[in-house]
Design a protein around this nucleic acid. Structure first.
Lengths: 144, 144
DNA sequence: TAGATGTAGTTGTAGAGTACAACGTAAGCG
DNA sequence: CGCTTACGTTGTACTCTACAACTACATCTA
Protein backbone atom coordinates (compact mmCIF):
# COMPACT_ATOMS: atom_id res chain seq x y z
CA UNK A 1 0.00 0.00 0.00
CA UNK A 2 1.50 3.34 -1.05
CA UNK A 3 1.70 6.25 1.33
CA UNK A 4 -1.20 8.66 1.49
CA UNK A 5 0.78 11.43 -0.24
CA UNK A 6 1.57 9.26 -3.24
CA UNK A 7 -2.08 8.43 -3.77
CA UNK A 8 -3.11 12.07 -3.52
CA UNK A 9 -0.38 12.97 -5.99
CA UNK A 10 -1.63 10.37 -8.46
CA UNK A 11 -5.23 11.48 -8.05
CA UNK A 12 -4.23 15.05 -8.73
CA UNK A 13 -2.24 14.17 -11.83
CA UNK A 14 -4.86 11.90 -13.29
CA UNK A 15 -7.76 14.24 -12.63
CA UNK A 16 -5.79 17.06 -14.24
CA UNK A 17 -4.89 14.96 -17.26
CA UNK A 18 -8.50 14.02 -17.68
CA UNK A 19 -9.73 17.59 -17.44
CA UNK A 20 -7.16 18.74 -19.95
CA UNK A 21 -8.48 16.30 -22.50
CA UNK A 22 -12.21 16.29 -21.85
CA UNK A 23 -13.15 19.28 -23.95
CA UNK A 24 -11.19 18.21 -27.01
CA UNK A 25 -12.54 14.68 -26.77
CA UNK A 26 -16.10 15.91 -26.46
CA UNK A 27 -15.67 18.29 -29.38
CA UNK A 28 -14.24 15.51 -31.54
CA UNK A 29 -17.05 13.13 -30.66
CA UNK A 30 -19.97 15.58 -30.89
CA UNK A 31 -19.36 18.59 -33.07
CA UNK A 32 -23.09 19.36 -32.97
CA UNK A 33 -23.19 19.95 -29.22
CA UNK A 34 -20.23 21.24 -27.21
CA UNK A 35 -19.47 19.94 -23.76
CA UNK A 36 -20.96 23.05 -22.19
CA UNK A 37 -24.11 23.05 -24.30
CA UNK A 38 -24.52 19.37 -23.65
CA UNK A 39 -24.21 19.81 -19.93
CA UNK A 40 -26.68 22.68 -19.82
CA UNK A 41 -29.20 20.91 -22.02
CA UNK A 42 -28.85 17.73 -19.98
CA UNK A 43 -29.49 19.70 -16.80
CA UNK A 44 -32.64 21.23 -18.28
CA UNK A 45 -33.83 17.81 -19.29
CA UNK A 46 -32.98 16.33 -15.94
CA UNK A 47 -34.68 19.08 -13.94
CA UNK A 48 -37.65 19.27 -16.29
CA UNK A 49 -36.89 22.93 -16.88
CA UNK A 50 -35.10 25.54 -14.82
CA UNK A 51 -33.97 29.15 -14.85
CA UNK A 52 -30.81 30.57 -16.38
CA UNK A 53 -29.75 31.71 -12.92
CA UNK A 54 -30.02 28.16 -11.61
CA UNK A 55 -27.77 26.91 -14.40
CA UNK A 56 -25.22 29.62 -13.65
CA UNK A 57 -25.17 28.78 -9.97
CA UNK A 58 -24.97 25.04 -10.54
CA UNK A 59 -22.08 25.21 -13.01
CA UNK A 60 -20.23 28.21 -11.56
CA UNK A 61 -20.76 30.14 -14.76
CA UNK A 62 -21.38 33.83 -15.17
CA UNK A 63 -24.97 34.65 -16.00
CA UNK A 64 -23.83 36.30 -19.22
CA UNK A 65 -22.18 33.07 -20.29
CA UNK A 66 -25.35 31.12 -19.64
CA UNK A 67 -27.40 33.76 -21.41
CA UNK A 68 -25.31 33.38 -24.55
CA UNK A 69 -25.22 29.62 -24.40
CA UNK A 70 -28.98 29.50 -24.06
CA UNK A 71 -29.38 31.97 -26.90
CA UNK A 72 -27.27 29.68 -29.09
CA UNK A 73 -29.27 26.62 -28.07
CA UNK A 74 -32.49 28.49 -28.78
CA UNK A 75 -31.23 29.53 -32.20
CA UNK A 76 -30.55 25.86 -32.94
CA UNK A 77 -34.09 25.10 -31.85
CA UNK A 78 -32.97 22.93 -28.92
CA UNK A 79 -34.36 25.06 -26.11
CA UNK A 80 -37.50 27.10 -25.58
CA UNK A 81 -38.28 29.81 -23.05
CA UNK A 82 -41.51 30.06 -21.11
CA UNK A 83 -42.00 33.27 -19.16
CA UNK A 84 -43.08 32.55 -15.62
CA UNK A 85 -46.61 33.94 -15.23
CA UNK A 86 -45.97 34.71 -11.54
CA UNK A 87 -42.76 36.64 -12.11
CA UNK A 88 -42.21 38.25 -15.44
CA UNK A 89 -38.47 38.57 -14.90
CA UNK A 90 -38.11 34.81 -14.97
CA UNK A 91 -37.81 32.58 -18.02
CA UNK A 92 -38.20 28.89 -17.40
CA UNK A 93 -36.09 27.01 -19.93
CA UNK A 94 -37.07 23.68 -21.44
CA UNK A 95 -35.56 21.40 -24.06
CA UNK A 96 -37.67 21.30 -27.22
CA UNK A 97 -38.67 18.02 -28.85
CA UNK A 98 -35.74 18.41 -31.21
CA UNK A 99 -33.39 19.34 -28.35
CA UNK A 100 -34.43 16.29 -26.38
CA UNK A 101 -33.82 14.14 -29.43
CA UNK A 102 -30.30 15.47 -30.04
CA UNK A 103 -29.57 15.19 -26.35
CA UNK A 104 -30.68 11.57 -26.38
CA UNK A 105 -28.40 10.82 -29.33
CA UNK A 106 -25.37 12.44 -27.78
CA UNK A 107 -26.08 10.83 -24.45
CA UNK A 108 -26.34 7.43 -26.05
CA UNK A 109 -23.09 7.86 -27.91
CA UNK A 110 -21.29 9.19 -24.85
CA UNK A 111 -22.65 6.31 -22.82
CA UNK A 112 -21.37 3.86 -25.37
CA UNK A 113 -17.91 5.45 -25.33
CA UNK A 114 -17.81 5.18 -21.55
CA UNK A 115 -18.99 1.59 -21.69
CA UNK A 116 -16.17 0.78 -24.10
CA UNK A 117 -13.59 2.42 -21.90
CA UNK A 118 -14.89 0.53 -18.90
CA UNK A 119 -15.64 -2.75 -20.65
CA UNK A 120 -13.08 -4.84 -18.82
CA UNK A 121 -13.91 -3.55 -15.34
CA UNK A 122 -15.82 -5.81 -13.01
CA UNK A 123 -18.92 -4.60 -11.23
CA UNK A 124 -17.29 -4.14 -7.86
CA UNK A 125 -14.64 -1.84 -9.28
CA UNK A 126 -17.18 0.14 -11.29
CA UNK A 127 -19.33 0.63 -8.26
CA UNK A 128 -16.42 1.73 -6.11
CA UNK A 129 -15.07 4.07 -8.77
CA UNK A 130 -18.48 5.71 -9.19
CA UNK A 131 -18.79 6.15 -5.45
CA UNK A 132 -15.34 7.67 -5.14
CA UNK A 133 -15.98 10.14 -7.93
CA UNK A 134 -19.24 11.24 -6.40
CA UNK A 135 -17.59 11.65 -3.05
CA UNK A 136 -14.71 13.60 -4.54
CA UNK A 137 -16.93 16.01 -6.45
CA UNK A 138 -19.16 16.55 -3.45
CA UNK A 139 -16.09 17.51 -1.44
CA UNK A 140 -14.96 19.88 -4.13
CA UNK A 141 -18.32 21.58 -4.21
CA UNK A 142 -18.27 21.93 -0.47
CA UNK A 143 -14.74 23.36 -0.33
CA UNK A 144 -14.79 25.43 -3.52
CA UNK B 1 -24.70 -3.30 -5.52
CA UNK B 2 -26.03 -1.19 -8.39
CA UNK B 3 -26.18 -2.50 -11.89
CA UNK B 4 -23.22 -2.02 -14.15
CA UNK B 5 -25.05 0.58 -16.27
CA UNK B 6 -25.86 2.76 -13.28
CA UNK B 7 -22.23 2.87 -12.24
CA UNK B 8 -21.10 3.75 -15.73
CA UNK B 9 -23.72 6.50 -15.85
CA UNK B 10 -22.50 7.95 -12.59
CA UNK B 11 -18.88 7.79 -13.67
CA UNK B 12 -19.75 9.61 -16.85
CA UNK B 13 -21.70 12.32 -15.07
CA UNK B 14 -19.12 12.89 -12.38
CA UNK B 15 -16.16 12.94 -14.73
CA UNK B 16 -17.99 15.42 -16.92
CA UNK B 17 -18.92 17.61 -13.99
CA UNK B 18 -15.34 17.59 -12.84
CA UNK B 19 -14.00 18.53 -16.26
CA UNK B 20 -16.52 21.35 -16.56
CA UNK B 21 -15.21 22.92 -13.38
CA UNK B 22 -11.50 22.21 -13.49
CA UNK B 23 -10.45 25.13 -15.65
CA UNK B 24 -12.41 27.72 -13.72
CA UNK B 25 -11.17 26.37 -10.41
CA UNK B 26 -7.59 26.40 -11.61
CA UNK B 27 -7.95 29.95 -12.90
CA UNK B 28 -9.42 31.10 -9.61
CA UNK B 29 -6.69 29.46 -7.56
CA UNK B 30 -3.74 30.36 -9.79
CA UNK B 31 -4.27 33.43 -11.92
CA UNK B 32 -0.55 33.49 -12.69
CA UNK B 33 -0.54 30.12 -14.48
CA UNK B 34 -3.55 28.70 -16.33
CA UNK B 35 -4.34 25.00 -16.26
CA UNK B 36 -2.87 24.56 -19.73
CA UNK B 37 0.31 26.51 -19.02
CA UNK B 38 0.69 24.66 -15.77
CA UNK B 39 0.34 21.30 -17.44
CA UNK B 40 2.84 22.15 -20.17
CA UNK B 41 5.35 23.59 -17.77
CA UNK B 42 4.98 20.61 -15.46
CA UNK B 43 5.60 18.27 -18.36
CA UNK B 44 8.77 20.13 -19.31
CA UNK B 45 9.96 19.94 -15.74
CA UNK B 46 9.06 16.30 -15.45
CA UNK B 47 10.75 15.32 -18.69
CA UNK B 48 13.74 17.59 -18.09
CA UNK B 49 13.03 19.35 -21.35
CA UNK B 50 11.23 18.29 -24.49
CA UNK B 51 10.15 19.55 -27.91
CA UNK B 52 7.01 21.49 -28.77
CA UNK B 53 5.95 18.63 -31.01
CA UNK B 54 6.15 16.21 -28.10
CA UNK B 55 3.91 18.44 -26.00
CA UNK B 56 1.39 18.67 -28.83
CA UNK B 57 1.30 14.90 -29.25
CA UNK B 58 1.07 14.23 -25.53
CA UNK B 59 -1.79 16.64 -24.90
CA UNK B 60 -3.66 16.27 -28.21
CA UNK B 61 -3.08 19.94 -28.98
CA UNK B 62 -2.40 21.53 -32.33
CA UNK B 63 1.22 22.54 -32.80
CA UNK B 64 0.11 26.15 -33.30
CA UNK B 65 -1.57 26.13 -29.92
CA UNK B 66 1.57 24.82 -28.27
CA UNK B 67 3.65 27.34 -30.14
CA UNK B 68 1.60 30.21 -28.74
CA UNK B 69 1.45 28.79 -25.25
CA UNK B 70 5.21 28.39 -25.21
CA UNK B 71 5.67 31.90 -26.59
CA UNK B 72 3.56 33.21 -23.71
CA UNK B 73 5.51 31.20 -21.15
CA UNK B 74 8.76 32.47 -22.64
CA UNK B 75 7.54 36.05 -22.49
CA UNK B 76 6.83 35.54 -18.80
CA UNK B 77 10.36 34.22 -18.41
CA UNK B 78 9.18 30.76 -17.34
CA UNK B 79 10.59 28.79 -20.29
CA UNK B 80 13.75 28.95 -22.33
CA UNK B 81 14.53 27.45 -25.72
CA UNK B 82 17.76 25.68 -26.57
CA UNK B 83 18.29 24.93 -30.23
CA UNK B 84 19.35 21.33 -30.72
CA UNK B 85 22.92 21.46 -32.11
CA UNK B 86 22.29 18.28 -34.13
CA UNK B 87 19.04 19.49 -35.75
CA UNK B 88 18.53 23.19 -36.09
CA UNK B 89 14.81 22.80 -36.67
CA UNK B 90 14.38 21.55 -33.13
CA UNK B 91 14.06 23.65 -29.99
CA UNK B 92 14.41 21.82 -26.76
CA UNK B 93 12.29 23.58 -24.15
CA UNK B 94 13.24 23.90 -20.50
CA UNK B 95 11.75 25.64 -17.50
CA UNK B 96 13.89 28.56 -16.34
CA UNK B 97 14.88 28.99 -12.73
CA UNK B 98 11.95 31.36 -12.31
CA UNK B 99 9.60 29.00 -14.15
CA UNK B 100 10.61 26.11 -11.94
CA UNK B 101 10.00 28.28 -8.89
CA UNK B 102 6.50 29.32 -9.95
CA UNK B 103 5.72 25.76 -10.92
CA UNK B 104 6.81 24.58 -7.50
CA UNK B 105 4.56 27.14 -5.81
CA UNK B 106 1.52 26.26 -7.87
CA UNK B 107 2.17 22.56 -7.45
CA UNK B 108 2.43 22.96 -3.70
CA UNK B 109 -0.79 24.91 -3.52
CA UNK B 110 -2.62 22.47 -5.78
CA UNK B 111 -1.33 19.60 -3.71
CA UNK B 112 -2.64 21.23 -0.58
CA UNK B 113 -6.05 21.77 -2.13
CA UNK B 114 -6.23 18.12 -3.09
CA UNK B 115 -5.14 17.07 0.37
CA UNK B 116 -7.91 19.18 1.86
CA UNK B 117 -10.52 17.71 -0.43
CA UNK B 118 -9.33 14.21 0.42
CA UNK B 119 -8.64 14.82 4.08
CA UNK B 120 -11.29 12.49 5.44
CA UNK B 121 -10.52 9.58 3.12
CA UNK B 122 -8.72 6.59 4.55
CA UNK B 123 -5.64 5.19 2.90
CA UNK B 124 -7.34 2.20 1.35
CA UNK B 125 -9.88 4.37 -0.43
CA UNK B 126 -7.23 6.82 -1.61
CA UNK B 127 -5.13 4.04 -2.99
CA UNK B 128 -8.06 2.45 -4.79
CA UNK B 129 -9.27 5.76 -6.19
CA UNK B 130 -5.80 6.57 -7.51
CA UNK B 131 -5.56 3.16 -9.13
CA UNK B 132 -8.96 3.47 -10.75
CA UNK B 133 -8.19 6.89 -12.18
CA UNK B 134 -4.92 5.70 -13.62
CA UNK B 135 -6.64 2.72 -15.14
CA UNK B 136 -9.43 4.84 -16.58
CA UNK B 137 -7.08 7.36 -18.16
CA UNK B 138 -4.91 4.63 -19.60
CA UNK B 139 -7.98 3.11 -21.24
CA UNK B 140 -9.00 6.47 -22.61
CA UNK B 141 -5.57 7.02 -24.14
CA UNK B 142 -5.68 3.58 -25.70
CA UNK B 143 -9.17 4.02 -27.15
CA UNK B 144 -9.00 7.72 -28.05
C1' DT C 1 -47.87 54.87 -2.75
C1' DA C 2 -43.05 56.53 -3.96
C1' DG C 3 -38.47 55.61 -3.71
C1' DA C 4 -34.76 52.34 -2.48
C1' DT C 5 -33.02 48.03 -3.03
C1' DG C 6 -32.72 43.53 -5.02
C1' DT C 7 -33.10 39.99 -8.81
C1' DA C 8 -33.26 38.08 -13.80
C1' DG C 9 -31.50 38.51 -17.87
C1' DT C 10 -28.98 40.93 -22.06
C1' DT C 11 -25.37 43.29 -24.33
C1' DG C 12 -20.70 45.51 -24.95
C1' DT C 13 -16.11 44.45 -24.54
C1' DA C 14 -12.06 41.98 -23.90
C1' DG C 15 -9.07 38.05 -23.34
C1' DA C 16 -7.81 33.04 -23.30
C1' DG C 17 -7.70 28.78 -25.77
C1' DT C 18 -8.12 26.43 -29.71
C1' DA C 19 -7.96 24.59 -34.69
C1' DC C 20 -6.91 24.82 -39.53
C1' DA C 21 -4.41 26.47 -43.35
C1' DA C 22 -0.48 28.59 -45.34
C1' DC C 23 4.07 29.45 -44.86
C1' DG C 24 9.44 29.40 -43.89
C1' DT C 25 13.26 26.76 -42.72
C1' DA C 26 15.99 22.87 -42.15
C1' DA C 27 17.04 17.85 -42.61
C1' DG C 28 17.30 13.59 -45.17
C1' DC C 29 17.64 11.09 -49.33
C1' DG C 30 17.44 9.78 -54.25
C1' DC D 1 20.65 19.20 -56.79
C1' DG D 2 15.62 18.79 -56.09
C1' DC D 3 11.85 16.14 -53.78
C1' DT D 4 9.85 15.03 -49.51
C1' DT D 5 9.28 15.25 -44.74
C1' DA D 6 9.54 17.37 -40.07
C1' DC D 7 9.47 21.46 -36.86
C1' DG D 8 7.80 25.50 -35.84
C1' DT D 9 5.36 30.30 -36.66
C1' DT D 10 1.81 33.31 -38.24
C1' DG D 11 -2.84 34.69 -40.10
C1' DT D 12 -7.47 34.01 -39.30
C1' DA D 13 -11.59 32.72 -37.19
C1' DC D 14 -14.46 30.69 -33.77
C1' DT D 15 -15.86 29.32 -28.94
C1' DC D 16 -15.99 30.01 -24.12
C1' DT D 17 -15.62 32.92 -20.58
C1' DA D 18 -15.77 36.96 -17.20
C1' DC D 19 -16.77 41.60 -15.81
C1' DA D 20 -19.30 45.73 -16.08
C1' DA D 21 -23.08 48.45 -17.51
C1' DC D 22 -27.65 48.33 -18.52
C1' DT D 23 -33.01 47.31 -18.73
C1' DA D 24 -36.94 45.48 -16.74
C1' DC D 25 -39.50 43.75 -13.22
C1' DA D 26 -40.34 42.74 -8.15
C1' DT D 27 -40.27 43.58 -3.34
C1' DC D 28 -39.64 46.03 0.65
C1' DT D 29 -40.04 50.13 3.52
C1' DA D 30 -41.02 54.63 5.15
Amino acid sequence: MPHRDDSVETIQQEMTAFARRARATAARMHPELSLVSYTLLAHLDDQRGCRATDLAAHYFLDKSTVSRQIAALEKLGFVERRVDPDDHRVQVLHPTEKGAQVLANVTASRRQAFHERLADWDETDLDRFATYLRRYNAAQERLG
